[in-house]
């Protein structure tokens, strides 16, 4: 396959950045998108040029490290797929592909296509956990959980924290991420003691980090590689409102 790549080049957060055009002509349709970039980077290194910096880790679609906004959609055109699991067979010979970093104020660009997503870590640090004793493990099934709630909690817990929701949101809002992290505990008995404190702390941290507010475009749900539903945003709104009104 022959492709024309327009890739975002930016030296640092302060640099203005621009697209750089590269022609690649030896792309196999079986390559993943990241492998295609690896091949390009290798040829750039051979030519003595600077390779493009981009994030990746497990390449199995479960770690949430890879990013990239491909032709205007975070993680590319295929639904429910991370960039590392996107294959070149999804593109046509002769295509032009625009590759940009995830864009949001809370995700400052470090270099080229790499953005700093540590804002998500700080949101988790203020409440994305449960406090449990580390003595003898409890009997399995001692806490009854309904089937529906167990399933919903699992759906929320599918979030890999990649940041595509905030990248896709025209408001740069990370409501889907925070909602998933709040709901996975709010749905289960283990999450109840810290429920109100958690939702207030995480939402406040989200706003401190400079993420925007939700205006229900539902772009986040559309690009989420784990198909986390915007239903959780409604659940978080309800929890947050309740917690604000009845905070201890």
């Amino acid at each position: 396959m022959k492709l024309t790549l327009h890739i975002w080049r930016q030296k640092s957060a302060r640099d203005k950045g621009k697209f750089e055009e590269h022609l690649v002509d030896d792309v196999s349709p079986d390559m993943s998108f990241l492998e295609m970039l690896d091949v390009l980077n290798e040829s750039l290194i051979h030519q003595g040029k600077e390779p493009f910096a981009y994030d990746h880790d497990c390449r199995e679609g479960i770690c949430g490290a890879c990013s990239l906004t491909i032709n205007g959609t975070p993680h590319g055109p295929e639904a429910a797929t991370t960039t590392c699991q996107l294959h070149m067979r999804k593109f046509k010979n002769g295509d032009s592909i625009f590759i940009e970093p995830f864009r949001a104020r809370a995700f400052p660009i470090i270099k080229d296509l790499v953005v700093d997503r540590s804002a998500f870590d700080r949101i988790i640090q203020v409440g994305g956990f449960i406090s449990v004793g580390t003595n003898q493990p409890q009997d399995a099934n001692a806490l009854p959980v309904s089937k529906l709630k167990a399933e919903l909690a699992m759906d929320a817990a599918a979030c890999i924290g990649c940041g595509a929701c905030a990248a896709a949101c025209p408001n740069g809002a990370s409501m889907l991420f925070v909602a998933a992290k709040v709901s996975q505990f709010a749905l289960l008995p283990q999450g109840q003691p810290e429920r109100k404190k958690r939702v207030v702390a995480m939402v406040e941290q989200m706003e401190k980090e400079g993420f925007g507010g939700c205006t229900n475009f539902y772009e986040c749900e559309a690009v989420c590689p784990k198909q986390v539903s915007v239903r959780f945003i409604a659940m978080m709104n309800r929890d947050f409102l309740g917690a604000t009104l009845t905070k201890e």
């Binding site: 205007g72 940009e100 864009r103 025209p170 408001n171 993420f211 507010g213």
Partner: peptide
């Protein structure tokens, strides 16, 4: 929301 997305996507 305007402040949270200072740089728009080119595409």
């Amino acid at each position: 929301n305007m402040a949270s997305k200072p740089v728009k996507y080119q595409v």
